[in-house]
Amino acid sequence: MAGGDTSWRPLARPLLIPAWLVIGIFALLPVLLMAVYSFLTKEFRGGVIWDFTLTAYDQFFITRGLFGDEAAQVEWTYITIFGLSILQAGICTALCLIVGFPTAWFIATRPARTRAVWLFLITIPYWVNLLIRTVSLKFLIRDNGPLNEGLMSIGLIDGPLPLVNTNLAVQLGLFYSYLPFMVLPIYAAVERYNFALSEAAADLYASRWTTLREIVLPVVRPGIVAGCILVFVPALGAFLAPDLLGGAKTFMIGSLIEEQFKGSQGNWPFGAAVSMILLSLVLMALLIYARAAAREGER
């Protein structure tokens, strides 16, 4: 393993160059660009003027009235959008976990041959573009779509359920979009799980429930954490589901950012600033988690 065979050492540096290039070009550079843009002045009809300013951040956090002539106050509009987005993404993560864990468990405990089939079935819808899938979902749940028509025809409801343009519809869209990102890492963890541990727990008088809580969940936790991060982070920045399923009433961070880079209404520095604030929130959350995990490791 790492550092075992020292004959590799002279090769290590050159071999790492591609990795560094990829990380540099595709990860660090865009973030750096965003950071820089967020401190520039907006050009009307998109683009930036290379003048350093804090206007974008000021616009996010502070309001001085509609005409900019009142005393500075906290601007709640965007903070509220952040709060609601975090709530939506959090609920989405919880739902994905509740549904994804049993699904992953089910797949991982099938015989080796059928596992691949199940995984394939889970991922099939994701070969279709997300936009198409989200629009299809809208067709499914709209007033005269198959869901409402079906429910009405069997007499369960009298009129169509108003689903489109609600938070519920957005939630459904998010859940549907990100479920596999929960299932796959948990599947990988459960597949590696040594079921003799569950037998050992049962042997030592643990009930099934206790075994799940005290043995299974802690051991597969890295998979659960990975799944939660992989769902929460993109759900927080999602814009397709809120745009297409939520309409004008439900606005999420993703839509807010998207809007800043679209057409003549755009404001690139503001969009960049919102992105930077989102990024710092996510990084802070990950950092807190990493420290908590490290502290537990020391114990």
Partner: peptide
């Protein structure tokens, strides 16, 4: 009797110690 109700304990072949 379920395994967790049998007054029998096992030393497993590969020990199956709880890693965490």
């Amino acid at each position: 009797l379920e395994p967790n109700r049998r007054p029998v304990n096992t030393v497993f072949q590969h020990y199956a110690l709880f890693p965490h």
